[in-house]
């Protein structure tokens, strides 16, 4: 098994290669403005580092968000294009699940919250019963509106760091999403025969667009 995993749903542009047992190579660069420029070089770097070719890959793992859309689409369209050429499956993984897995590897157990930055003073978030067990659907909300739901729970992710008044028990590890965690989670799911998410974006918001409010006159009334 050779899994190529990547995620562009958070400021981290991250790619990793995983053989089903361990991470062979990983590249993580944090730059929220350059997902499109950084992803392919990162993929190339992990393949080169591991001494493998893209054609050796048996499956793709891609973070499906939720995350800011412009960056999120980079990972998804890249995975879909690779899959079209290679004829291998694309396994979609909720980006928050990748952070939850990493939190478990960092020693967190029991219920906790994962929250990432959704901009516009909102967070993408979900509650977990444990590192491999998400308890709620991913959602986008204002932190104040979910204070009751996350009260007293440990929290990971950049969203938790941004709103300490709501996420009062923030854990610093993991700092950022890593594709290594995403790949490890995917390998675990493949071994356990657990399902994946469809490789489609979790937008959670409607497109930002207003229907023009009728025709505006230019002559003074």
């Amino acid at each position: 098994m050779l899994l190529l995993a990547f995620d562009t749903a958070t400021p981290a542009v991250t790619a990793a290669l995983h053989d089903g047992e361990r991470v062979l190579a990983e590249s993580t660069v944090v730059d929220a403005r350059r997902h499109g420029e950084l992803l392919l070089p990162a993929v190339d770097r992990v393949l080169t580092t591991a001494g493998r070719a893209l054609a050796d890959v048996t499956g793709l793992v891609v973070g499906v968000g939720p995350g800011p859309y412009t960056g999120l689409r980079v990972g998804l369209v890249t995975a879909a294009s690779f899959a079209d050429v290679l004829g291998v499956p694309v396994h979609g993984v909720c980006t928050l699940d990748g952070l939850a897995w990493a939190a478990g590897e960092a020693g967190l157990d029991g219920p906790f919250t994962v929250a990432t930055d959704a901009r516009r003073k909102e967070v993408y978030w979900a509650r977990y019963d444990g590192p491999r067990s998400r308890a709620t659907e991913p959602a986008v909300d204002r932190p104040a509106d979910i204070a009751d739901a996350v009260r007293g729970l440990p929290a990971v992710g950049a969203g938790a760091a941004l709103y300490p008044e709501v996420f009062t028990d923030r854990r610093a590890d993991p700092d950022h999403l890593s594709a290594g965690s995403l790949a490890a989670l995917a390998a675990h799911r493949l071994a356990a025969g657990e399902p994946f998410e469809p490789p489609l974006p979790l937008y959670l918001r409607r497109p930002d667009a207003q229907v023009p409010a009728g025709y505006k006159a230019v002559l003074p009334k």
């Binding site: 499109g36 392919l40 369209v77 890249t78 879909a80 294009s81 690779f82 079209d84 050429v85």
Partner: peptide
């Protein structure tokens, strides 16, 4: 992004 992935 698609063009890069296909090309690569």
């Amino acid at each position: 992004s698609a063009a890069k992935a296909y090309a690569y």
